[in-house]
Design a protein around this nucleic acid. Sequence first.
DNA 1: TTTCCGTGTTTCGTACACGATACGCGATGC
DNA 2: GCATCGCGTATCGTGTACGAAACACGGAAA
Lengths: 226, 226
Amino acid sequence: MNDRSTTPVGQLSRQMLVDSVYDRLMALIMDQQIRPGSKISIDALVRELGVSSTPIREALARLEADGLVLKESMRGYFATEQLSAAEFDDLCQFREVVEGWAVSTAALRATKADIEALQAELDTVPRPLDGDDYESFRRLQEHDVRFHMRLLQIAGNQALTTAFQRTHPHVRTFRLRYEAKQGNSAIREHEAIVAALRQGDPKGAQDALISHIRATANRIRPWLDT
Amino acid sequence: MNDRSTTPVGQLSRQMLVDSVYDRLMALIMDQQIRPGSKISIDALVRELGVSSTPIREALARLEADGLVLKESMRGYFATEQLSAAEFDDLCQFREVVEGWAVSTAALRATKADIEALQAELDTVPRPLDGDDYESFRRLQEHDVRFHMRLLQIAGNQALTTAFQRTHPHVRTFRLRYEAKQGNSAIREHEAIVAALRQGDPKGAQDALISHIRATANRIRPWLDT
DNA sequence: TTTCCGTGTTTCGTACACGATACGCGATGC
DNA sequence: GCATCGCGTATCGTGTACGAAACACGGAAA
């Protein structure tokens, strides 16, 4: 989403203030240093981040489009509330529909190179997942995002990939995932998906993916409403 | 998307400048008065719309999230290019996946009231579709958007509805739809969908919807690349 | 307790300074 | 003569500073 590396012909595009503010706010929200539902004051950010209001407003506008903050007229911005159980289930259902179609399509389209790229992604995960610490989790989470995005890309539908990306399912369940500590099982489920893709089995891949999403959901669900 | 009627407890939220700028730009893009691919200068808009840059920037940020304009660092905003054939097909595929699931779910969930609301929506369309003029088309288009949104709402998945809404399939094919003049057939296909829903037939509803999307796509496709 | 009002805080919008990009023109090299 | 390169100017995006309007909160009065 934030890969604004337009990169005008070989030259790295300068990091605008908007981008760094966006990244910092995203991090603050993900780590819950900005609590769900709490007010996000532009003035406070001006003082805290040491930049003027314009880039902050633009970053907030972007975050609003991402569904991570909410704007109320003449009242300001607020962090979106923690997912309710119903919203969480909606999100999982959405993933089943979109990713389910994507993997079954991917099973028919995947090249050798695609499969190997997926395998390489799996192999880079440090195993056994030793660390209980925040950084280890963060690396795992980033692996998970890359893995699922790659599945979508293999399916090859840009509109669908973008729509998925914009719902930010990973970001919105970040804290929950952290608390649920679900690393090793998730990796095994990923392997099952890759195995089905390798055999070119659409139905098998779809089943494996849906099992994975449901298993993840079951691991996370106890942490809702806390 | 632009229903920012946060409405702080019964009181209508004041129309901010951002909102009116957003609406005007949306109209300019839909009507192709801003050509696909062309530059959108902030300064020019400042002069033309008579407001300062801040609300314009925020409106453009929103439109970027909607995928209707594109921003390049230090170079400015551009209207997104006209859909290529491949992008158009992606969009149709996306609709088949998302809306297909939605109607089959809707067939199981729809109440009498839901069905009647859909029927009412169909009945409000002026028939026979006499006007070849722009205004008639516009009314038809708005009907179509309402009809499809209502289908999604009956399915009851907010995450999926939002994701669909944010891809703006209708907006992005507006001009094409206008040129393809496809009114009467579309209405009949809508009726087939409602009939299947009325019978509580998930498979039938899904088939009817997919037929509708493909028929629409076939009517529109000749107008691509013009 | 409820309503009204004043004060402080924050958002919304404007005006302006700075810096980067784009474009045209002329000079240079082949 | 033609293409390429470099320079200077105009234009536009980015960020700052400031004023005006709206909201939120607390105290006072009925």
